[in-house]
Write a protein that binds this DNA or RNA. Structure first.
Lengths: 221, 221, 221, 221
DNA sequence: CATGAATGAGTCTTCATTCAT
DNA sequence: CATGAATGAAGACTCATTCAT
């Protein structure tokens, strides 16, 4: 990962500029890759095409990224990070009521799926079924995402003073929720044109999730 | 028919055997592909390896399958068909109560995921992010699967005399359920070693799904 | 080459029929090859396609023809034979005057080029630039054609009591005439649509040839 | 144009050398292809062989040429260009008399056929009967060649104040002449060993052509 | 740092030909 | 004789990656 060093005062100007340009190049290349991977598919995109679109040489791509897989991995991480932050931020807005939970799916659909079709393409399609390395990174990302959700559910349940029917429940809930997000995104944004009413999908998705969670609470007798 | 030597039917023995061998070859190749695709990944498997494992020539592979993609598509369809039949059969065993719905996830985990790890690998991983043709077929398969579930939910809701809060609900439920199946399979069988207690996962998954469905029923006022 | 035996009286009927069918098959296959070679090109046509069009098995093609080249060679010979016969017949109609020579080009254009576009395609294009064997046969055919023309010119010159400026002249004339036929055919029937007035082309071509021949006569001083 | 291409000032030496090497590589590969195509035939030559002879990798071949056909097309064009220039130069030496026309065939035989047997092989044999693209380019080349000759004949006829019997005559003459060149080259240099006295062939060929042309002049009444 | 020419292993795919039935 | 499944060698082409300049 390229370091995001803030320009220290004792750093010569040239170095600063070079650093900024470096950062720029890195991002330019990554954006080009994102565009092409989502448009043509990872396997159908060549390094040369990426270099062309980014207006750099193929060698430059290899200066900033270890190899083609690395490009995909970096993208995945970026997207994963973005998604986790988005969901996390949305969660913090809630009042830790299950009801407050309601608008997270909306944010997911509106800000993530709708706003960034390339991202869902890469995150849910192009990064699947590639090399071992990519798969491993993908797994770790999903695990983190699942943990985030686990934490959120835990917080809520604590706040609500409720317990789950088993220690395992929370994890399972998180896994289910991730699955729902994934398939809803694919179904309505990759396979359909995303023209369905987002509000509707979000509401019912939230209901479904809540219903699911509730059903795993230990009935308080 | 001119030939008089009918052993049992009007089909000569030779033809029968040849037909069987043909069917065998086709399946032998398909099984070899399944094994390798799931073990090494689609992209990392060469036609030659498949031919070797199936003990045929590369040409034979191309006699039975249009190309490499075709091999994957045929596998996908076979697996998809198998899964739909399995779920369908399990659904028919239920008493159309939501509770009867309970053991379907178990069947999925036990008979599909546990019994056929290669199948989930191909269905949920290796067939993703490949060519346009593969993606199209995959989509159609998932749409069928979703429709199956929609039908099932519809039947149950009718039997129960309940209505959903919107016309759209049933589809959304189906999409969510598919997503849950997918991610649970990946999470516990591709990424973990499948050693978790299946019974537990199945039960809670079923609970989650039921809770989700229930929460989209129109409250009966 | 399949023998064209006439049915001897002592030949069993079955054999006769078989012979006729054999001859038929041979021709059916050859016609299929002619059609496809001229339409798609020799290299772009597979034996299977020929077999399909002829409604026989690929094995049958190999029963009647040694290999793919053989098919082309047989076609070349057939076409060459046809052309030589056509030109020969036309020559015999002349009064051995150079003027009588006039309508041969017309016959070539009308009956050969116009009537059989597939034949010129194969004879002047598809049979060129293939294997050594094909090239050798093609050469021999052209040599024969050239000899035919040499003979014709010789006859005429004798009849007219004229001599050529060198012993070599007649051959050269023949070579030139063959070249003219070839290129005129290609130019107006392969590369253009053959819509130019045949009569015109024929007349001027004849004039050109005659002028050429005349100019190689020893001036009678 | 920004570059003031002074040979050494603003162009770094490295660039110059690289440019020369690039040009060299391109030509080395092209020469290797020419050699092999003419010796073994286009279809019988593999890219690997070309690369080996040129002492480059197969990839390098594809860096400089789109594909195998492209190699042939580039060769054809080079040869066609060479031939047209040769004939053009020879024509300019004439005094626009028909007699001056005499030594063009000699130049063709001596400098083109005799000096470059590989070129006639490729131009008149190996480039025939290949793909559609090759055929199209070949056609265009021959059309240009025919036009060159048309122009030449036109000039001469104007200079001589003679008219042809029809507007179409000039084109036909050009077509015939091209045909003669082609077949003479094939006959005496591809099919025979080129040992015939070139002088003789040239003279009589010229005579034949002139006779042909003359016979299409309108008789001056 | 940047370039982009060069590499060459890797793969899919084709198809003429054969031969057991 | 006819069939058509099976062979397997052959070859075009791609492209991630490297490295001299």
């Amino acid at each position: 990962m390229i370091k995001t060093n803030k320009p220290d005062t004792d750093m010569p100007r040239r170095s600063i500029r070079r650093l900024r340009e470096k950062k720029n190049r890195y991002n330019t290349i990554l954006k080009a890759a994102e565009k092409l991977f989502s448009k043509k598919g990872f396997n159908q995109t060549s390094i040369e095409e990426i270099a062309d679109l980014a207006e750099v040489s193929t060698g430059a791509v290899y200066f900033y990224f270890k190899n083609k897989d690395d490009l995909l991995i970096k993208l995945m991480h970026e997207i994963g990070h973005y998604l986790r932050k988005l969901l996390g931020k949305e969660f913090e807005k809630t009042d830790l009521t299950l009801n407050g939970f309601n608008n997270i799916p909306y944010a997911f659909l509106k800000n993530f799926c709708m706003g960034h079709p390339e991202k869902i393409t890469i995150f849910f399609r192009e990064s699947v079924g590639q090399s071992l390395e990519v798969e491993e990174q993908r797994k770790q990302l999903f695990v983190k995402l699942t943990l985030d959700i686990k934490d959120a559910i835990t917080k809520i349940s604590k706040e609500q003073g409720k317990n789950f029917i088993s220690d395992f429940s929370i994890e399972l809930i998180a896994v289910c929720i991730v699955g729902i997000y994934e398939r809803v995104a694919c179904h309505y944004f990759l396979w359909q044109d995303g023209s369905k009413n987002i509000q509707d999908i979000a509401e019912e998705t939230a209901s479904f999730m809540l219903g699911g969670i509730n059903s795993l609470f230990k009935t308080g007798l």
